[in-house]
């Protein structure tokens, strides 16, 4: 279990090693210009582990129906230290441990830097698919609101008549 925890702590420290080089790509020469790709990166991960169902120890004389049971072995054994013939039995059934984790990441180009004879400039890259989807949503949103206003207007007019 300690090894597993140490491994998780190591995974957790990966984020500290993030560097800017992941955002600014390798310069590419195209003709007399140099292009540097620029991206937005995001990543995340999570992990968890746990143990459950610790084994139970029961101490009792063989003919004694009242057994002294507990999770802590030493504590349980102490309850019959003055009784001779008292026997302890420990069960590990049900005890177990498990762990799991997941990770994901994405990189999206947002611009490129062009270094040429006429200077250095930033050319943004637009995510047209995202904009188109948002535009459709905005259109539907606007139609819904205009519709509600028209219905209210209609009721206002017919209510007067």
């Amino acid at each position: 279990m300690d090894e597993l925890k140490a491994m998780l702590e190591k995974i957790g420290s990966i984020g500290d090693e993030i560097n800017v080089d992941a955002v600014f790509g390798k310069p590419q020469t195209v003709g007399d210009r140099v292009l540097i790709p620029v991206a937005e990166i995001a990543y995340g991960f999570g992990a968890g582990l746990g143990t459950g169902g610790p084994g139970e120890c029961c101490c009792a004389e063989s003919d004694d129906e009242e057994a002294c049971c507990g999770v802590d072995e030493d504590e349980t054994e102490a309850c019959c230290e003055h009784d001779e013939g008292c026997e302890c039995e420990c069960h590990d059934e049900g005890a177990g441990s498990g762990g799991g984790g997941g990770a994901g990441g994405r990189a999206r180009p947002i611009a490129y830097i062009e270094v040429g004879p006429d200077g250095t400039k930033v050319e943004p890259i637009m995510d047209e698919q995202k904009i188109a989807l948002a535009g459709m949503l905005l259109g539907a949103w606007a139609i819904a609101w205009v519709g509600m206003v028209l219905v209210t207007l209609f009721h206002a007019i017919t209510g007067r008549e």
Binding site: K5, L8, E9, I11, G12, G15, I18, V20, A22, V23, F24, V38, A39, E40, I41, A42, Y43, G44, F45, G46, A47, G48, L49, G50, I110, A111
Partner: peptide, 27 residues
């Protein structure tokens, strides 16, 4: 000379049984 805005959200603790980390880097 580039500069990047790094946003990190982290929670939990590996020794407590679980943790997560989210990192976003924007130029």
């Amino acid at each position: 000379l580039p500069s990047v805005l790094v946003t990190t959200v982290e929670g939990g603790n590996a020794s407590d049984g679980g943790f997560f980390r989210f990192v976003k880097a924007r130029p």
